[in-house]
């Protein structure tokens, strides 16, 4: 089968990926051992596979990897710097917002995109921003609190 080769930046490092035809961005991440981005529904209905591509929040399960060519990709693995948690990650840990944790990377990446544009959100805005992210453990109380807390932590920095 014809193999496709693309170049892109993943979490700040230039990489060269060999792709199968039809390979989704999520499959390509997993094939390259970046498994923090989760496969939960595979149909774009839960936002569990949220990543940032060229500054936009997208679902990696619904995009072909080839479309990420020359792109700048940020995944949950790229948030912590030198072992220090990103304020959003720190807030999720502080608030007990992760229970089983499977939806957590998707929530954190969605919050990352949201807080870039809304650094001082109120609760209703946070709830609206996370409306597409499915969590089955928390009832959303602590994830919403964590995003509000993250906004505070990011202001303090």
């Amino acid at each position: 089968m014809p193999e496709l080769e693309i170049v892109l930046t993943v979490n700040g490092r230039a990489v060269r990926w060999h792709l199968e035809p039809g390979e989704t961005l999520l499959e390509a991440l997993h094939a390259h051992h970046l498994k923090g981005t989760k496969l939960i529904c595979g149909t774009g209905d839960c936002c569990g596979c949220g990543v940032m591509l060229n500054g936009n929040s997208i679902n990696a399960c619904c995009m072909l990897a080839a479309q990420a060519e020359d792109g700048d990709l940020l995944t949950v693995e790229g948030l912590a710097q030198n072992g220090k948690l990103h304020p959003i990650q720190e807030a999720f840990a502080q608030e007990g917002a992760a229970q089983c944790g499977y939806c957590t990377p998707g929530f954190i990446m969605r919050a990352y995109a949201f807080l870039q544009e809304h650094p001082h959100p109120d609760e209703a805005e946070v709830r609206a921003a996370l409306a597409g992210n499915i969590c089955r453990c928390t009832g959303y109380v602590k994830p919403v609190a964590a995003v509000l807390r993250a906004a505070e932590l990011m202001q303090e920095q």
């Binding site: 840990a93 992760a98 944790g101 957590t104």
Partner: peptide, 23 residues
């Protein structure tokens, strides 16, 4: 006490700790 979860760090960093990620 409201101790932080012992597994908070792997969960928020996307560390490969689930059966799904075992290779």
């Amino acid at each position: 006490q409201k101790e932080r979860r012992v597994d908070a760090r792997p969960l928020v960093t996307g560390a490969p700790v689930y059966a799904a990620e075992y290779e």
